[in-house]
Design a protein around this nucleic acid. Structure first.
Length: 543
RNA sequence: GCCCAUGUAGCUCAGUUGGAUAGAGCGCCGGUUUCCUAAACCGGAGGUCGCAGGUUCGAAUCCUGCCAUGGGUACCA
């Protein structure tokens, strides 16, 4: 419908000597319902080019275009020169018919057909349980993946981790500390070691498995290995509990084993992009347009994150994805330009890589911030949070704000099991529809005859028009990667349905009207369910 | 110092990438139920869109400068 109007407007603009292409014209839903269903600024654009009054141009355009009255009921001109279109009953009937025939596929697009995407998210090293910051990352990543799948892309969900290096060694040493102190041996807590009770539990488990056989060993590996194993199992369970399954876990270590790291280093030397200084190996980023050179390999011989990150992204690029998406917290914002520059220098198209940065999360209770620190013991884990509010609320709350904004997770609101909680408000609308449909099924009436033009009240028109906007929303989501737009869309949809429900009785003695309203209810349920599905949230049949 | 994000109602936040009278939820005040789930609906009060300039028919939105907050600016990841 929108496309048709744009095309006709564009053609009509030619008579003013300036053809305006459909992509230049804005045709959007006006805020004020008195301004119709769609509003265009084309006359204002033409006025700028032709020196004619926008109102005159608008009037002239209005007289020169025509539409099927059943689809565009009326066209109005409003100062300073807007053209306002109002949908007809035929358009609305089409929306409902489309939803009822597409069902769970309503809104699906084929934009990504036969294209592949890799979405990398979470990627926390196995040094401890996932915290709420990882939670936001995880839920955003999964939601982006779902959005892409709904747009036809084939998606790989990938988790990148590092089980070598300083942090893991510290973790092992911290476990060893607990192990030794539980066995009453003399020991001291390592500097910068990891706190947290889970490490004591791991030490306990190690004693059960191996007794005191590790007391005299110099090697920290056994401690590291068990810690990694136990923590990783725990992480996978945590993710599973919030509806997230990874397709691939990529171990940084494999890049060393395959020689990929060495190969990257060699090529940088060949291109004169690497050099040695102070015993370390530097990447000549200044030659790549960045401000400072950075260390790739420390004087100790250990690489910094840059080298494996570049090798890792090269690996992903070599896997021939059409798109590569990294979901990262704001604290990583300084690191990815190095990686992108490095990969580009190796001859790859870095345009394929998009980095979605999200801001931090604060947890508030009774209006007060709960302070958190990963290394210290006083943090709330993702698991604990989920146990308290449930999977659906957790996911919704992590998604309800723009990824560019700090997220304030309000525990008090999240724990409310009433309609004040936006998640329940939306789910309730769905449950209520299910209930209506059950009632209709119980009555032994024949609801086959439906005349959708009977749905002509203010509430019904608004609801149907909104349902018709869902496919556009889905496409927009995959372009903007802003899941919160969908949470806003769904709560508005639930609101429109509730208004309709309050004003109109669905199941009545009038069989034809009942049939039409049931069709509307069913359509609404499909859109809510499909939308919630993209967020990874259930659409219950009763509450 | 420099880089990124943010600053909109008492609180938490939207604002469709420049449009018409700036919105929602919570909180506050008032109203609605013989009826399919009241876990609902309606109305009201509440605003210098951080500040100051600029761009144009038109700015919360774009540009410049300043202020504030968070993050980054490692031979940590």
């Amino acid at each position: 419908m929108k496309k048709q109007i744009l095309k006709i407007l564009s053609e009509a603009s030619e008579s003013f000597g300036h053809k305006i292409s459909p992509s230049e014209i804005t045709l959007e839903k006006p805020k004020n319902p008195n301004h119709g269903d769609l509003s265009s600024n084309i006359a204002l654009l033409l006025a700028g080019k032709t020196n004619q009054k926008p109102l005159d141009i608008a009037n002239s355009l209005k007289d020169n275009i025509s539409f099927d009255k059943n689809f565009v009921e009326k066209i109005e001109v409003a100062p300073p020169g807007f053209l306002n279109f109002t949908y007809g009953a035929g358009y609305r009937a089409e929306v409902i018919e489309k939803i009822l025939s597409d069902k769970s596929d309503y809104g699906r697009s084929a934009i990504g057909k036969s294209k592949t995407v890799n979405v990398e998210f979470v990627s926390a090293n196995p040094t401890g349980p996932l915290n709420i910051g990882h939670g936001r990352n995880a839920v955003i990543g999964d939601c982006v993946a779902r959005i892409l799948e709904f747009n036809g892309f084939e998606v790989t969900r990938e988790y990148y981790f590092n089980n070598a290096g300083r942090q893991m060694r510290l973790l092992g040493e911290s476990v060893r500390f607990h192990y030794l102190s539980k066995l009453k041996k003399e020991t001291s807590f390592p500097e910068d070691g990891y706190q947290g009770e889970y490490l004591a539990d791991i030490a306990e488990q190690l004693i059960e498995e191996k007794g005191d056989s590790l007391v005299d060993g110099e090697d920290v590996s056994p401690f590291k290995e068990i810690a990694e194993r136990v923590i990783f199992e725990d992480i996978k369970i945590t993710l599973d509990n919030i509806g997230i399954r990874m397709d691939k876990y990529f171990n940084e270590d494999s890049l060393y084993k395959s020689g990929a790291i060495e190969s990257v280093l060699e090529r940088f030397f060949e291109k004169d992009l690497a050099y040695e200084k102070d015993g370390a190996v530097w990447l000549r980023l200044t030659k790549l347009g960045l401000e400072e050179d950075r260390v790739m390999k420390k004087s100790s011989g250990e690489p910094t994150y840059r080298l494996p990150d570049i090798a890792y992204h090269e690996d992903k690029l070599n896997r021939n994805y059409d798109m590569i998406i990294d979901i990262l917290g704001a604290d990583h914002h300084a690191s990815f330009p190095d990686v992108v520059a490095g990969v580009e220098a190796l001859g790859y198209d870095a345009q394929k890589i998009s980095v979605l940065l999200h801001q931090f999360v604060t947890l508030t209770k009774g209006g007060k911030k709960i302070k958190m620190s990963t290394r210290k013991a006083n943090y709330v884990t993702l698991d604990e949070l989920r146990e308290e509010v449930g999977q659906d609320v957790l996911r919704y709350f992590f998604l309800m704000r723009s990824i560019n904004s700090h997220l304030n997770f309000e525990m008090d609101l999240a724990k409310k099991e009433t309609d004040e909680n936006p998640v329940y408000y939306i789910q309730y609308a769905h449950a209520r529809i299910s209930s209506i449909i059950r009632l209709a099924a119980e009555r032994d009436e024949n609801y086959d005859q439906s005349d959708l033009s009977l749905l002509n009240s203010v509430e019904e028109k608004a609801l149907i028009t909104y349902l018709g906007e869902f496919p556009e929303m889905v496409v927009k989501l995959h372009l903007l990667f802003q899941p919160h737009l969908l949470t806003v869309f769904l709560s508005e949809l639930a609101k429109l349905f509730s208004r309709f429900y309050t004003e109109h009785k669905v199941v009545s003695d009038d069989n034809e009207l009942t049939a039409s309203r049931l069709a509307l209810c069913l359509s609404t349920a499909f859109v809510i369910k499909n939308g919630l599905g993209l967020l990874g949230i259930k659409a219950p049949e009763s509450m």
